[in-house]
């Protein structure tokens, strides 16, 4: 009861403080630069220059505290030892580039990067194109979109059952092994199968992201002027040509945005690997690698260095993505 009161109290206080801040600062500005009197025009112009900063101020400050400060702190930490107090120069970086675990992570991340965004976008595009043409398309769409609503860890749990393996003489409860056994094969420990296990993990993310790609691309496909399609039909183009030469080029911007959005997600992929293999059997990725050094290795310096590598990879794609999205609108 007391807690509830406290919660409501602090909520009211917070909202009140916000109102007070926005209203009060606005009022102060009006008092300082009254929009009347001789230099009204000048005052209004100056006030209008200051006002956005006044209103954006709190958000900018809070965002800086949560986003910008950690960046600088990570940079600082990356030059320091495991508890962040001894300056070690470039030692962390030297260690990183020599470390086998890091190389494995980079390689796997690249693998994810090549496969997942293209596969998700590709399947999403196919799904969008096909579901628009069939009568039960909306049901199919909901089914394909459904995985988006599942958390990565939840999805991993589901797929753990699919990849599950039991001793050869016991009945297989894993779907994949059950099928393999049914056709007379040997049950496999899929997620421990070096190299290929990476792809088994990727399938999970593709399964989730195809729905996202489909929804965005389907909206884009519907935005294509019907008359350009009809003109192509009359010109004698077949459905495949119409799709490849008329529709896809017209939604190219959207495809690029979907692709890069998934790319960024893939660079940060973590939960699936943690839940499925925890980076064992050659499935390590950067984010999980960082997590390992932070919370298991308890090494601030090294984990900060890994974090910076991830950031360096994400930022350029992010900038390009934002540019492309703005061009689209």
């Amino acid at each position: 009861m007391e807690q509830l009161l406290l919660a409501f109290g602090s909520m009211a206080l917070g909202v009140g403080a916000c109102v007070l801040y926005f209203w009060g600062s606005n009022r102060l500005l009006d008092l300082a630069l009254p929009p009347r009197s001789r230099n009204a025009a000048d005052n209004i112009r100056r006030a209008n220059m200051i006002r956005p900063w006044l209103f954006l101020g709190p958000a900018v400050i809070i965002l800086s505290a949560y986003l910008v400060y950690p960046v600088f702190n990570s940079i600082y930490l990356s030059f320091h030892g495991r508890s962040g107090d001894v300056y070690v120069g470039l030692d962390n970086y030297r260690w990183l580039f020599a470390d086998a675990g890091f190389r494995e992570s980079i390689f796997n991340n690249l693998l994810w990067l090549v496969v997942v965004p293209s596969a998700s976008t590709f399947f999403g595009l196919i799904a969008a194109a096909l579901t628009d043409r069939i009568s039960w398309g909306n049901i199919a769409k909901s089914l394909i979109f459904m995985p988006m609503a599942i958390s990565f860890v939840g999805a991993s749990v589901i797929w753990k059952f699919i990849y599950d393996v039991r001793a050869a003489d016991v009945e297989q409860i894993g779907l994949l092994n059950a099928i393999v056994v049914f056709f007379g094969g040997e049950p496999q420990a899929w997620i421990a199968l070096p190299f290929w296990n990476n792809f088994f993990l990727m399938i999970i993310l593709i399964w989730i992201q195809t729905g996202f790609a489909m929804v965005i691309l389907s909206a884009a496909l519907r935005g294509i002027p019907e008359e350009t399609v009809e003109a192509a039909v009359l010109d004698g183009a077949n459905p495949f040509q119409i799709f490849m030469k008329i529709k896809v080029p017209q939604i190219w911007g959207t495809i690029a945005v979907v692709w890069t959005t998934i790319t960024i997600l893939v660079l940060k992929v973590f939960d699936i690997v943690l839940a499925m293999t925890n980076g064992q059997w050659g499935t390590q990725v950067l984010a999980n690698f960082m997590f390992d050094w932070m919370f298991r290795g308890l090494d601030f310096g090294r984990s900060a260095t890994i974090a910076l590598v991830i950031m360096a990879l994400v930022v350029p794609i992010m900038i390009w993505n934002i540019r492309e999205a703005q061009k689209d609108g």
Binding site: P225, E227, T228, E230, A231, L234, G236
Partner: peptide, 15 residues
Amino acid sequence: ARRNISMVFQSYALF
């Protein structure tokens, strides 16, 4: 496609 006609649309429908 097989009717042997061409058409100009109101919106031009250029690609």
